[in-house]
């Protein structure tokens, strides 16, 4: 294992559509060590498609290209689909943006976690159940035994999101791509989930890509932040220095969040400039 877990050089994701090509990701480059990297940017800027391309779950009609896309020194793009699948779920995991659509609606929460675990490790049913319950407990689900037997439509938004997180963490991945993992959680649970992710980075050396639109969270949680706009990286900055960001888009994003104790009605909105997308 090297210190650089992931290298991304000139990543592009292009969708053919009836009205021509949509370039969702247009030449993104960064590298990731055993650290927390935040990706922020507005809706449609290509954050999820960047994560999906790394994970290998880009929609089939889209084309992915890169000068380099390597995980732990292995070239991801030249791998067979089988090798890629084997990596996925064991060494690389992704918490998808929308838990309601990522969980299987006809399988109980508990069974989904147990099956995920059992496809990656040889464990007895009883042990898998124990570990699934422990994981639900770790993501601060009250009464894990009740939730274990519920179907996705029977849990609240935040509970579904945590079930998804539990499912992804139960196999102990080395690279975790977390796409808006805490957007439906109340703030105290949000911090509990971040603590779990933080511990995995600090103690197990996991690499974490944390996609979020919550700049306050990203600046307090991540080490570095990549700011995307229209499929490109417009700024890379140390998270602790996000407040001093230079790009007008980053500054605008920071400025339009409501803050407790600072009344502004209406809130400032972004005045988008065409040259940002150049």
């Amino acid at each position: 294992m090297s210190d650089t877990l992931l290298e991304v050089d000139d990543l592009r994701v292009t969708f053919p559509t009836r009205t021509g090509l949509v370039q969702a990701v247009r030449g993104v480059s960064f590298s990731l060590g055993r650290e927390r990297l935040g990706i922020v940017g507005e809706s449609g800027s290509g954050k999820s498609q960047t994560g999906r391309a790394i994970m290998g779950v880009t929609p089939p009609q889209a084309e992915v290209s890169a000068k380099k896309l390597a995980f732990d020194g292995m070239d991801l793009l030249s791998m067979s689909p089988r090798e890629r699948r084997a990596l996925r779920g064991s060494r690389i995991a992704m918490i998808l943006q929308d838990p309601k659509y990522s969980l299987d609606p006809v399988m109980t929460i508990g069974r989904q976690i147990v099956e995920t675990l059992r496809t990656h490790e040889k464990v007895s049913k009883a042990e898998a159940r124990e570990r699934a319950l422990a994981m639900l407990q770790a993501v601060q689900i009250r009464d894990p035994a009740r939730v274990f037997d519920l179907y996705p439509h029977e849990v609240s938004g935040g509970m579904g999101q945590r079930a998804m997180i539990a499912m992804m963490l139960v196999t102990g991945p080395e690279l975790m791509i977390a796409d808006e993992p805490t957007s439906a959680l109340d703030v105290t649970v949000q911090l509990d989930v971040l603590k779990i992710l933080d511990k995995l980075v600090a103690e197990r050396g996991m690499g974490l890509i944390f996609i979020s639109h919550d700049l306050r969270l990203v600046s307090s949680f991540c080490d570095r932040v990549v700011v995307m706009y229209a499929g490109k990286i417009v700024e890379q900055i140390k998270a602790s220095e996000l407040r001093d960001a230079q790009h007008p888009y980053t500054r605008g994003l920071l400025n339009c969040m409501p803050r407790i104790g600072f009344e502004r009605h209406p809130l400032p909105v972004l005045d988008r400039k065409p040259e940002w997308a150049a």
């Binding site: 940017g41 507005e42 809706s43 938004g157 957007s183 439906a184 639109h213 919550d214 700049l215 605008g252 994003l253 920071l254 339009c256 969040m257 409501p258 009605h265 209406p266 809130l267 400032p268 909105v269 972004l270």
Partner: peptide, 19 residues
Amino acid sequence: EPTSALDASVQAEVLNLLE
């Protein structure tokens, strides 16, 4: 949670609209 699925800039627009 009318804005929790939206990014910060769009969130501001939707909150302004609601007000």
